[in-house]
Design a protein around this nucleic acid. Structure first.
Length: 310
DNA sequence: AACATACTCAACCGCCAGGAG
DNA sequence: ACTCCTGGCGGTTGAGTATGT
């Protein structure tokens, strides 16, 4: 049966607002003020749901609504606030005069999340980046031009509710990695806001010098099945697939795919390295010089961006 | 040029908290 | 204390547009 709709929908108009409807709504509110949204449509002569009227007024018709592109300062504010507040759009909007929660949410989902999706913090133990540095880097990352395959995403069934873009949007993961014979340790933290084309985020040369692109031919050899290959004593991995295939942990001994419920786990791998990691999202990274078994059914379908650690 | 696919964003949906009765 | 109503919020959808092949 479902819940009762917010208002009687029969005979009500839906979809785009016309200029005439806008005018009616504006005139009515100017004369009578905001509020009483349920009765407003009838009184204003609109065949709209009260909620629809409210949304139209708040997001587009109010005089103080700021239109146009977001400035660099506004972007920076959104990134900062989102880092602290998560998807609390109305709260974020309250810090940006003239911007609505809906507008910020849209902007985040279509612009910023892809960039943030890149490494938020990448630091060797000697040179940790500050939060400010990260935010600056994120704002410099250009959106990848061109199409990215949504078909691939569908093929690998990433529509798992737990991995949905929105559910991951505010999560962050940190990975500390055992050395590959050098004694060096590295740590990184990722904020994910997984979109269909999550490989975008790894176009991260700007912030991570070892990031580069792996083409399908690099991984289609018989002895290196799956979306990874050995490189310089390290292992190149396809983070895209890694994220999408949240269950690969069970198939790959030396690969750590974290899960929110495993926060703070200390893992010993067969290669003798200890991988200490703490995540709050299903992630991500692994580092080993061991070639591991991979699901042979996972192939890179197109050129993708890869992050390498060695 | 045509088609396929991704992107954008306005609008809608369902849930929830709080106030009124 | 309870129910109902309303406003507000975050998540999602889908039409229109842009772009790659």
């Amino acid at each position: 049966m479902g819940r009762t709709p917010c208002c009687e929908k029969t005979g009500l108009k839906r979809g785009k607002w016309t200029a005439e409807e806008d005018e009616k709504l504006v005139n009515y509110i100017k004369a009578n003020g905001e509020g009483s949204w349920r009765s407003l449509p009838k009184n204003a002569g609109l065949l709209r749901c009260g909620k629809s009227c409210r949304l139209r007024w708040i997001n587009y018709l109010r005089e103080d609504v700021k239109r146009g592109n977001f400035t660099a300062d506004e972007e920076e504010t959104i990134v900062k606030l989102h880092n602290n507040l998560g998807n609390r759009w109305s709260l974020i909007a309250s810090h940006l005069p003239g911007r609505t929660d809906n507008e910020i949410k849209n902007y985040w989902n279509s612009h910023l999340s892809r960039r943030i999706y890149s490494f938020r913090s990448i630091a060797a133990s000697e040179s940790t980046l500050s939060q400010t540095d990260i935010i600056k880097m994120v704002s410099k990352i250009k959106k990848k031009s061109g199409r990215v395959s949504r078909a691939v995403a569908k093929k690998y069934n990433i529509k798992n509710p737990e991995n949905s873009p929105t559910s991951l949007a505010h999560k962050q993961a940190t990975v500390e990695v055992g050395p590959t014979g050098t004694g060096e340790r590295k740590s990184a933290s990722l904020e994910s806001s997984l979109s269909d084309d999550c490989c975008d985020l790894l176009r991260a040369e700007e912030i991570w010098p070892n990031a580069f692109t792996l083409s399908p031919k690099d991984v289609r050899e018989e002895d290196t099945p799956g979306p990874w290959k050995e490189v310089d004593g390290g292992l190149l991995m396809n983070v895209k697939h890694f994220w999408e295939e949240g269950d690969v942990t069970e198939q790959c001994e030396n690969i750590l795919v974290n899960d929110a419920r495993d926060e703070g786990v200390l893992m010993n791998t067969d290669s003798g390295y200890t991988h200490e990691y703490a995540c709050s999202s299903p992630i991500i990274s692994y580092f080993t010089d061991e070639v591991v078994n991979w699901d042979h059914n996972l192939w890179i379908e197109e050129e993708q961006d890869i992050l390498i650690w060695s």
